[in-house]
Design a protein around this nucleic acid. Structure first.
Lengths: 109, 109
DNA sequence: GTAATATGCAACTGAAAGGTTGCAGGAAAA
DNA sequence: TTTTCCTGCAACCTTTCAGTTGCATATTAC
């Protein structure tokens, strides 16, 4: 579960999240093409892609003189499961609290 | 959608993710109790709680001389929807690619 | 009232993150 | 073979972040 933190951290940057969105919507793309649509330099984009790769969220394959980057969906599942687990436990905690509050106090009988 | 990045960023720290997990599993707790189970100082925990509050993931209510912190589940939903959207578009991109590859080349006929 | 407990605020430090510029190297086009 | 294009590497700068220590404040307990 602690392994989910780096994934969230990788998604927790506006530029990187934008790259992930464009990779998911537009399919595999080269570094240059991704950089052309970004508001930062190509080197900054390359750095962000490297961070996504370290989180196993994406990887690039060389094709001639360009490198094509594509998403890697498994870590997304892990992140989603982490959120699901938090939400589920939180819901059950709320349910337990509600049950506790609604239960008549039996010590007064 | 860009609003999801701060939420991911808030979840992208091990200490904070651990706090979120404990709040979801153990229910509302005071700062001191959360700090007692953490590996960092109470002030560090307080800072992290403040960051979670800025991301609207949690909030604290004063109760006497302590402050009770509880989770705020709505932003979690937003984060989950962001992941769902990425995964959905990614799946459709894969499906389109597969369809393209499997389609017989009609220009050769 | 005094002591103990729980929290908040402020200043400081070290490290990491995001960004840039400049240059080098390899592949493709002329 | 030159020239152009795409990418990687390295150094540097600035800002942010995580964490700490020390002190002040408010509330409960004695």
């Amino acid at each position: 579960m602690r392994t989910a933190a780096p994934i969230f951290a990788a998604l927790g940057d506006e530029t990187r999240l934008s790259l992930v969105m464009r990779l998911s919507a537009g399919g595999p793309q080269s570094v240059g093409r991704l950089a052309a649509g970004a508001s930062v330099t190509r080197q900054a984009v390359a750095k962000h892609l490297g961070i996504l790769a370290e989180a196993n969220l994406a990887h690039g394959d060389r094709a001639g003189r360009e490198v094509i980057w594509r998403l890697d969906p498994q870590p997304l599942d892990e992140a989603r499961h982490a959120i699901d687990r938090i939400a589920a436990e939180w819901d059950s905690a709320l349910t337990n609290l509600k049950r506790f509050l609604e239960q008549p106090d039996q010590s007064t009988s």
